[in-house]
C-alpha cells in the first residue's frame, strides 16, 4: 500500500528551479532511496514533505489524502545539516524535541530510557551537548528523530559522522524499524548503503526525476552484457578468435586460477558466449556482472548532462 506520494511537485526560488514536476510514490514498510547529485533538488523535496516549505504547484499525499499540518507528528526527519542546542543537557533536550513531536513528557521519558539503555549512553543524560563528540551528538540526534515512532522517517545522510561500528548499529536499527512497519525515505551519496538498504530508488538531477524503480530492477536494466568467467586451461587472447567476436575487458592467468572478463555485443546472448567459450576452455564459474548503484548513478547523471 502506498503511504506517501508527491504528484508533479514544482518549486522555484528567486532565480532557480529547484523541482520540476517531480512525482514519487513510497510504499508502506519499504525503504525508498532518494538520490541525486548535490544541488539537484533533494533537500527541497524533503523540506516540502516536512512542510518546512510548500510546493508552487503539485501536491503531497499521505495515506491517500493530502498532507495536513498535523501530519508533521507522524514524520521523523534527520536533516543533513543537523545540530542540537549546545548548552542544553542531553536528556532535557531529547525530552524537549520529543515533546515538540507531540509526545507527552512521560511517554518521551519512557521511550528515551529504552533508547539510552539500548545505545548504552545513560551516563550522558546530564551532560551538556557541547561536551559530547560529534559522533555521540549524532547518536543523540538519531534517537530524537525516531523517538516518537513516526510512520514516515526521512534520513538525510544518516551515517555521516559515524565510525563503522556505529554505522553498523544505526543500519541495524533502520532495518529493525522497517521490520516494525515504518516507511523510510533515505537520501545519501553512499551508493553501497543504497544497495544494502533501499527497496526502491528515485534519482533526481537538475530539478527533474530522471530514474525511478525498484533497486534490483534498475541495476538489471543498466547491466551491459559483461560476464566474469573463471576457467581452467590455457587461453592466449591475442589474435584469438574470441577477441574478434567479443570485447575482452581483462584476462588474468596465474597459479590461483584464470579469470576472464568479457562483454558480448548487442544482438548476441549468453548462450552463444558459453558455446564459444567451451570450445576453448573448461569453465569453472560463469557470472553476469550487475552494475553497482555507483556505476548506475554516474552513468545516468552523465547521460543527463
Amino acid at each position: 500500500m502506498e503511504l506517501f506520494s508527491a504528484k508533479e511537485v514544482s518549486k522555484t526560488y528567486a532565480n532557480h528551479q529547484a523541482l520540476t514536476k517531480v512525482s514519487i510514490s513510497v510504499e508502506e514498510g519499504t525503504i525508498f532511496g532518494l538520490l541525486g547529485p548535490n544541488g539537484a533538488g533533494k533537500t527541497t523535496l524533503i523540506r516540502i514533505i516536512n512542510q518546512i516549505t510548500g510546493p508552487d504547484s503539485g501536491s503531497v499525499w499521505l495515506d491517500g489524502r493530502p498532507l495536513k499540518a498535523e501530519d508533521i507528528d507522524q514524520i521523523g526527519y534527520l536533516p543533513e545539516e543537523r545540530g542540537l542546542y549546545k548548552k542544553m543537557k542531553v536528556g532535557e533536550q531529547a525530552l524537549y524535541l520529543g515533546q515538540l513531536k507531540g509526545l507527552s513528557r512521560r511517554d518521551a521519558m519512557k521511550e528515551l530510557k529504552i533508547w539510552f539503555e539500548k545505545f548504552e549512553i545513560t551516563a550522558w543524560w546530564d551532560k551538556k551537548v557541547m561536551e559530547l563528540s560529534k559522533g555521540m551528538q549524532q547518536k543523540v540526534q538519531f534517537i530524537c528523530t525516531v523517538l516518537h515512532k513516526p510512520r514516515l522517517l526521512i534520513f538525510d545522510e544518516p551515517f555521516s559522522g559515524f565510525d563503522p561500528i556505529n554505522t553498523d548499529i544505526i543500519t541495524r536499527e533502520i532495518l529493525q524499524m522497517k521490520k516494525d512497519g515504518a516507511t523510510i525515505i533515505f537520501s545519501t551519496h553512499n551508493m553501497e548503503s543504497v544497495e544494502q538498504l533501499c527497496d526502491h530508488i528515485a534519482l533526481i538531477d537538475k530539478s527533474k526525476k530522471i530514474l525511478d524503480g525498484p533497486t534490483q530492477q534498475i541495476r538489471e536494466k543498466y547491466k551491459s552484457n559483461i560476464y566474469d568467467i573463471a576457467y581452467r586451461g590455457d587461453l592466449d587472447i591475442h589474435g584469438h578468435v574470441l577477441a574478434g567476436k567479443y570485447n575482452i575487458l581483462s584476462n588474468e592467468q596465474n597459479g590461483m586460477g584464470n579469470k576472464l572478463s568479457i562483454q558480448y555485443p548487442d544482438g548476441s546472448n549468453s548462450r552463444e558466449l558459453i558455446r564459444d567459450l567451451v570450445e576453448h576452455v573448461e569453465i569453472v564459474s560463469f557470472n553476469e556482472v550487475i552494475p553497482s548503484m555507483n556505476e548506475v548513478f554516474i552513468k545516468v547523471v552523465k547521460q543527463n548532462s
Binding site: 507528528d73 536533516p79 542546542y85 524535541l97
Partner: peptide, 14 residues
Amino acid sequence: EEKQSRIVEVIISS
C-alpha cells in the same frame, strides 16, 4: 544560535 548550531531545521520540522 539556532541557525548556527543548525538545530533550526530539526525544530521547524516539528
